[in-house]
Design a protein around this nucleic acid. Structure first.
Length: 266
DNA sequence: AGCTGTGTTGAA
DNA sequence: TCAACACAGCTG
């Protein structure tokens, strides 16, 4: 008898199965990773190490299916700050963004960068200076797609010079999850108002902002560059649940309804 | 030329 | 939903 039935893996055409979920063998000995969603396969890249591939699957599973997803390794450090940071990181990126990072092998680096950011600035605002808050009006959250910044606050914190006032400037704000919001800020001479325009309606929609809710603006001068922050607070909060402390743990931030996933082929 | 990732199928 | 298998087509 020949040895084709056993011990001839080297020249055998049969690829070795992986013991890990979502991990499939590649002809060259590397490992592919895939996850399924709605009858469709989402390709997560190829990796040299089988275990690395398995961890990639786990990350995608957490992002796609929430923290109860079946994974290859135990990722259940409830109460662990690193695990919380990772959940926050996952929930503040779209599925497409996470898939992209996994495929490009940049997920770990980007997560670490976010953690560094957190360590430097904190999420609870201890290094942020509150600039001002505004109770949003019905027209701020209506169809005008703009928010008026009270003139006194605008001129104090976000001065615009006449040459560019009408054209406006693009400003980047981070919210408490680390998500960046890019908004146009300009002066409308017709109404003599300072307004946030392009990008504002997206913020309203995603934060589910209602008239009477609060929008807060901060600045941080820690680190190389000054940074701006904005986020919303519901109208009748206890007044204490700002951001940062409680409410961080135990919230199913990964259980949000699914949104945009578009496979990106490149 | 070698590799990745898709097309496809059948099992659970 | 899942992995197995074959290989088209992409990349360098």
């Amino acid at each position: 008898m020949d040895d084709s039935e056993y011990g001839n893996e080297v020249e055998s055409k049969k690829l070795p199965s992986s013991k890990y979920k979502g991990v499939v063998p590649q002809p060259n000995g590397r490992w592919g990773v895939q996850i399924y969603e709605k009858h469709r396969r989402v390709w997560l890249g190829t990796f040299t190490e089988e275990e690395e591939a398995a961890r990639v699957y786990d990350i995608a599973a957490l992002r796609f299916r929430g923290h109860n997803a079946i994974t290859n390794f135990n990722v259940s450090f409830e109460n662990d700050e690193d695990y919380y940071m990772e959940k926050l990181f996952l929930s503040s990126h779209s599925k497409a963004e996470i898939v992209d990072m996994l495929r490009k092998h940049t997920y770990k680096a980007e997560l670490e960068e976010r953690k560094q950011n957190y360590a430097c600035h904190g999420i609870s605002g201890e290094s942020r200076e509150l600039l001002f808050e505004k109770v949003v009006t019905p027209s701020d959250v209506g169809k005008l797609n703009r928010m008026v910044i009270p003139k006194q606050q605008a001129e104090k914190h976000f001065p615009l010079y006449t040459e560019i006032a009408s054209k406006g400037v693009l400003m980047n704000f981070e919210d408490n999850s680390g998500k960046v919001w890019r908004l146009r800020y300009c002066y409308w001479s017709s109404s003599q108002s300072y307004v946030l325009t392009k990008g504002w309606s997206r913020f309203v929609k995603e934060k589910n902002l209602k008239a009477g809710d609060l929008v807060c603006f901060w600045r941080s001068n820690v680190g190389p560059n000054p940074r701006l922050f904005m986020d919303s607070k519901p109208r009748d909060g206890s007044g204490f649940e700002t951001m940062g402390e409680v409410r961080l743990f135990g919230v199913n931030i990964l259980d949000e309804p699914n949104r945009d996933y578009v496979a990106n082929n490149r």
